[in-house]
Each structure stands twice: as structure tokens, then as C-alpha cells.
Computed example of a mutant assay.
Amino acid sequence: MAIDRLSDLRRARRIVVKIGSALIVGEGHPKTDWLHTLASDLKSLRDGGTEVVVVSSGAIALGAGAVGLTDRARASLSHAQAAAAAGQIALARLWHDALAAQGLGAAQVLLTMDDLEDRRRYLNASATLGKLLEQGLVPVVNENDTVATEEIRFGDNDRLAARVAQASGADAVLLLSDVDGLYDREPSKADAELVSTVDGVTPDILAMASSASSSGLGSGGMVSKLQAAQIAERAGIALAIINGRGPSPIARAMAEERGTLFLPRRADGARKAWLGGRLAAAGAISVDAGCGRALLDDGASLLAAGITRVDGEFSRGDLVEVRSEDGTAFARGLSEYDAADIRKIAGLRESEQAEQLGYAPRSAVIHRDHMVLL
């Protein structure tokens, strides 16, 4: 099923809808009336045959208001975790009530980055989401901020939504923002133009993003939304950004065809899509131009002979980035060696590697079956 414009999202078999904090919470209080109009939009999607997964921010914002935390206090990890614990109950109740008013059942799912970075836990999350949808429920997903640390956090729900779309087998992701979509320059400028369709997130597209968030409540911005689009497009998933302000935002955006639609670029297999969406690389391997061409043009495995530099300390089986000579990351994969051993054999041919390693070398540093191009 091709998704070429916003209104095509109505025909998606399964869609992930992400809502930011500023849309749900205003001045510490939930925007209950708005949320009920959004729930009506979700019911319309369901009535049209589209299964819906919600990724909802708002727990920290709700909890901060409930316990009187200031913006400065909210910046502390321990304060944010406490606010999330208090606010998650209120957020779950809001979604339960809004969906119940439309005759829909809700199910809460809290995830950490590790739940989606670890392959076994990722498959468990995927199975749970599938079962909830099979039972006719609407999974409401949020990052488990109460236990997540700075080192193992998504930090924004935009990228979480893209990863949840992979795990749930969704066709599309819909990000509700406080702007209409991606503009070719800062939206506040008079000559800024909305970009309606993006066929691949290129460096030029990334340059259009502003990291500013007008709300001050959310942790995301346009940069995180483009990162989410990159994850989605590599997995064959369409992603759209629309303005969530005002009642019934999904119905309005589709009727007006107003927003930015990122077209999927390719449909990697399940394992490679998971690899391409992983966020926490443990290190990096730089390669020479000839090796880079072999990886990009021929789909070759990464051999030690083409390696020029190793950054970071990682172990066999860890996810690492592959970079060109100018430092641009163009692939990632699972390393067959730890960092120390790769440094020993970097630049050497297979016949020279055993003496350095003290054992027979493996067929590749990263096998092509465990590597994905970015």
C-alpha cells in the first residue's frame, strides 16, 4: 500500500500516533477537552480499519505540576524521575477516560531504550504490542522515565515512536507537533515555506531543522523528528508531522493535506531494520575510501584491511558505527571482535592477522548479514 500524501494515512493497516507534552498539558493542567477530540480522531481511524498505537508524552509535565516542581528542578534526573512516577498515573487515567468515551480500551506500555536495543527484549515488546492490538486495545506507550538514566534514555518520544512502529509492524508514524511540519528555514521567518513531501532525509533536509521547541515542555524538536524519520524510512515506514494544536487535529490535517510527509526509502528485513533503528552505538570504526565503496556499492562485509581507525571501547557483539575518512557515519553493525583486537589487525590482510591475534581470524570484522547501511 503506497502512502504518497497525508490523506493516505487513513488506509494504513497500522499507525503509531505520537503526542508531545505541550499538546496534552498546559500550565500544569491536562487539556482534557482537546484530548477527547483527538480520541475521536483515533476512533475514526479504527472505524476505517486502521489499528492505532499511541506514544504519549506528558508524565513528567503532569507530575511536575502535581508536586510543585519548577522548570529548574525538572532538569535534574532524580526530580524528573520522581515527577514521572507521579505523573504517569494521571496520564494513564487521562488516556483511559478519553478512549473509553469513544468505546475503546486502553493498555499502558512503559519502555526503556534497553527494551528496544536488546534483540530479545525487542521481540518481547513486539509480541506484547501485537497481542494488545489483536485484542482490540489501544496501546498507550511512554518512555519509562522513572527508571531510565541519562545514558540509556531515548530522551524524546519522536524516536521512540519510530522504534515502536518497527516493533509493532506499523505502516506509518504520525507525529503531532506545535508547528505544521518541516519548514525550509526557521518557521518564524516571513519567507519560510512548509515542505510537503520529503523523499529521503538528506544533509540539506537536516540543515532545515531547528532544535528549538516553542513550548519549553517537551524534550524534542525538529531535529529529533528528522532522526525519527530516518529510522522510519529505512524500515519502509512512512512518517508525517502535523500541527496538533486545535480540536480534531488528525482529521483537520488530512482534510487540508497540511503537514510534512516523509516517504519510506526502502524496506529492510526485520533484523536489519532493528539494527538500523538502534541508537546507542558502543564505538566507531573508520575505513578507507576503497573499503567504503565496497560496502556501499557491492554490499561487502567489513574486512580489517580497510580499517584506518577505531574509536571507543566495545566488545564482540556490540553495535558500532562505520565511518568514512571524513567522519561521516554510513553504516552500523555488530562487531565480530572487541575494540582492542580490531586495533591489532587494522589495515592487515587475513594472512597477517593470526600472528597479531594469537588465534585464527574470523571471516570479517562486521559480516554483511549483521550490517545495515544508513
Score class of each variant (00 low, 15 high):
3 I>G: 08
4 D>L: 13
5 R>W: 06
6 L>G: 02
8 D>A: 02
13 R>W: 03
22 A>P: 00
27 E>D: 15
30 P>L: 02
32 T>P: 05
36 H>F: 14
40 S>E: 10
41 D>F: 10
42 L>F: 01
44 S>Q: 14
46 R>P: 03
51 E>G: 07
53 V>H: 05
54 V>T: 03
54 V>P: 01
58 G>D: 06
58 G>C: 02
60 I>T: 13
68 G>H: 02
74 R>C: 02
82 A>D: 01
87 G>R: 14
89 I>K: 05
99 L>I: 08
101 A>P: 03
106 A>M: 13
114 D>K: 04
142 N>C: 09
148 A>W: 04
150 E>V: 14
166 Q>H: 14
169 G>C: 10
178 D>V: 12
184 D>S: 10
193 E>V: 12
204 D>E: 15
208 M>N: 03
211 S>E: 09
213 S>V: 06
215 S>R: 01
221 G>M: 00
229 A>Y: 05
231 I>N: 00
234 R>G: 12
245 R>S: 09
256 E>Y: 00
257 E>W: 09
266 R>W: 03
266 R>P: 07
268 D>H: 15
270 A>G: 06
281 A>Y: 05
287 V>A: 06
288 D>Y: 10
291 C>A: 15
294 A>C: 00
299 G>L: 14
311 D>R: 14
324 S>K: 13
325 E>A: 15
327 G>P: 09
337 Y>A: 13
345 I>T: 01
348 L>Y: 10
348 L>F: 12
350 E>W: 11
353 Q>G: 05
358 G>S: 07
361 P>K: 04
361 P>G: 10
364 A>W: 07
366 I>Y: 08
369 D>K: 15
369 D>S: 15
372 V>Y: 05
373 L>K: 09
